[in-house]
Design a binder for these strands. Structure first.
Length: 296
DNA sequence: CTCCAGGCGCCTT
DNA sequence: AAGGCGCATGGA
């Protein structure tokens, strides 16, 4: 829960952690910019290049600029979140226990809303490797270059809504995002215009925040729930995609012949998984993707 | 080759 | 309200 920080005046810091599987967390399809380099992970958080490496007790961070304040990183990694308390709110049944045991230390990040929203607009009917590729192209072409440590490949900020709003649809299509290009362009314009204030969404009731997101083109229930969960801190938000649908059917409706409606799945989820349903969803999602049952 | 991917918008009943 | 379909692109 509490972590001890050992900082020096340069750009290193170590954070003591418990039950934090950095690899699973950075590689669980909630963020799309982390690159594995040996045992380390390189990414961009709050417009800063950062390199992370975990051992059994700690996460070690290395940035470019000397930093005494690492809140931007500890907040992103949610190092102060008491995971045990979250897990205690999960339903006490065997399926959930199995998923939690299989993905021990899996966490939710707290991402920047714009990057999260834009990335998930690009996610529809794409595999995670392809989402990564599209996001990477978008950043290379329209983000700002960042300082990196010597010997590392160039890194770029995630382009702002203001920047993307100035582009043509063809500029975005050239990043291989296909039919998602007009959605991203129009949403960029609306966010840049201030028609939606992403930074204030977390203050609203979840239903209002969800409605505001779903008003944006290319944003339906699933993508809205991803932003609510991964960026706005609504841990009850429960994104239902193809993997979670499969998991719910297999684990909780095994005798159902035909598919259970989306509406029914949402009702089941909020009733069954409780106030941290979104956290439970991440365990089911990761469990399903990485450790699928051998039979049926 | 075909099938499908962390869906959405629009069109039918 | 609920279900079906097209949409770009590229892994598997």
């Amino acid at each position: 829960m509490s972590h001890v920080r050992h900082c020096n005046p340069a750009s290193f810091a170590s954070f003591e952690v418990q039950d934090y599987d950095l690899e699973a967390t950075l590689n669980s399809g909630q963020a799309f910019r982390w690159q594995q380099q040996g045992r380390a992970w390189v990414g961009v958080v709050a417009n800063r290049w950062v390199r992370l490496q975990a051992d059994h007790r700690s996460i070690h961070a290395e940035a470019v600029e000397p930093a005494l304040d690492w809140h931007w990183l500890t907040y992103y990694l949610q190092l102060d979140l008491p995971l045990e308390e979250v897990l205690r709110t999960f339903p006490q049944e065997e399926q959930m226990r199995t998923a939690v045991r299989a993905c021990h230390g899996l966490r939710l990040l707290r991402q920047e809303p714009w990057e999260c929203l834009a990335s998930f607009i690009l996610s529809s009917t794409k595999q995670i490797v392809q989402i990564r590729q599209i996001v990477s192209l978008l950043c290379e072409r329209f983000g700002d270059p960042l300082r990196v440590l010597p010997g590392h490949p160039p890194a770029f900020s995630f382009p702002s809504s203001t920047r993307l709003a100035t582009l043509r649809e063809s500029d975005l299509r050239d990043c291989r995002m296909g039919f998602r290009a007009p959605y991203l362009l129009e949403t960029s314009k609306r966010v840049a215009d201030g028609q939606v204030d992403l930074a204030q969404l977390h203050l609203l009731p979840i239903e209002s925040a969800r409605r505001a997101l779903m008003d944006l083109p290319g944003v339906g229930r699933k993508i809205a729930d991803c932003v609510l969960l991964f960026a706005c801190g609504f841990q009850a938000a429960f994104p239902v995609d193809i993997w979670v649908t499969k998991a719910l059917h297999r684990l909780y409706f095994p005798r159902q012949q035909q598919s259970v409606s989306l509406k029914h799945l949402h009702r089941f989820a909020v009733n069954h998984f409780g106030p941290n349903a979104g956290y439970a969803q991440q365990y089911l999602f990761h469990y399903m993707r990485t450790k699928p049952l051998p039979s049926t």
